[in-house]
Simulated scan of single mutants.
Amino acid sequence: MTERPPLLDPRGPRFVAAVTTVVLVVILATGSGWLALAQAAVFALGALGPRRSPYALVYAKVIRPRLGPPGELEDVAPVRFAQRVGLVFTLAAAVAYLAGGWVVGTVLAACALGAAFLNAAFGLCLGCEAYVLLGRLKAKS
């Protein structure tokens, strides 16, 4: 008997992306490498499991109880992969900002912002799409 993959409410990752969008806007407005490093830590927790992110905990404890049941559930693996991608971008942005590379930090944070905004506003998770694409490429080889 095959084990079913863990599933989650897709509204949670969208909420997480909305909060992340706000944080990334502040990072871009201030050029704060320390805030970028804090966001990288949030992504690191999310990469361990999307429900471990502090933003996801807020969703689970404050928002989710006030909503009806989700219309569908989604696999955790693509979301975990997307969190890893966000970790790479924000960690690199933090290093760049803290090393004085304002332009590089800004470009990396802007890329992360674009991805977070697309997920928050339209439900388009670029990291999740990359996960599916990589899975298809791996299956063909």
Rank of each mutant, 00 (worst) to 15 (best):
M1F: 12
T2Q: 14
E3P: 11
P6W: 04
L8G: 10
L8R: 13
D9V: 03
D9E: 02
P10V: 03
R14E: 03
A17N: 00
A17C: 06
A17D: 01
V19K: 02
T20H: 01
T20Q: 02
T21R: 09
T21N: 04
V22W: 02
L24T: 07
L24H: 10
V25H: 07
V26P: 04
I27E: 04
I27S: 06
I27C: 15
L28G: 13
A29R: 12
A29I: 02
T30G: 02
S32Q: 12
G33A: 09
G33R: 11
G33N: 07
A36N: 09
A36R: 10
L37H: 05
A38N: 05
A41S: 14
V42I: 07
V42A: 00
F43H: 11
L45W: 11
G46D: 05
G49Q: 09
G49W: 08
G49A: 09
P50L: 05
R51M: 09
R51F: 11
R52F: 08
S53K: 03
P54W: 08
Y55R: 00
Y55P: 01
A56W: 03
A56F: 05
Y59A: 00
A60C: 11
K61F: 15
V62C: 00
I63H: 03
R64G: 01
R66S: 04
R66N: 00
L67K: 02
P70Y: 01
P70H: 02
G71T: 04
G71V: 06
E72R: 11
E72V: 10
D75H: 14
A77L: 15
P78N: 07
R80V: 05
F81R: 14
A82F: 12
Q83R: 11
L87H: 09
F89L: 15
T90D: 10
L91R: 02
L91A: 15
A94G: 14
V95M: 10
V95C: 05
A96I: 11
A96N: 10
A99K: 12
A99F: 14
A99E: 08
G101P: 06
G101D: 03
W102K: 13
W102P: 02
V103F: 13
V103E: 08
V103Y: 12
V104S: 04
G105S: 05
G105V: 07
T106F: 13
T106A: 13
V107R: 05
A110W: 09
A110S: 13
A110E: 03
C111A: 13
C111H: 03
A112N: 08
G114E: 02
G114Y: 02
G114Q: 02
A115T: 10
F117A: 15
N119K: 13
N119R: 13
N119D: 09
F122I: 04
G123Q: 06
G123N: 04
G123V: 01
G123S: 03
L124H: 05
C125F: 04
C125I: 02
G127N: 07
C128V: 01
A130R: 08
V132C: 07
L133A: 12
L133W: 10
L134F: 14
G135F: 13
R136M: 14
L137F: 12
L137H: 10
K138F: 15
A139H: 15
A139G: 12
S141R: 15
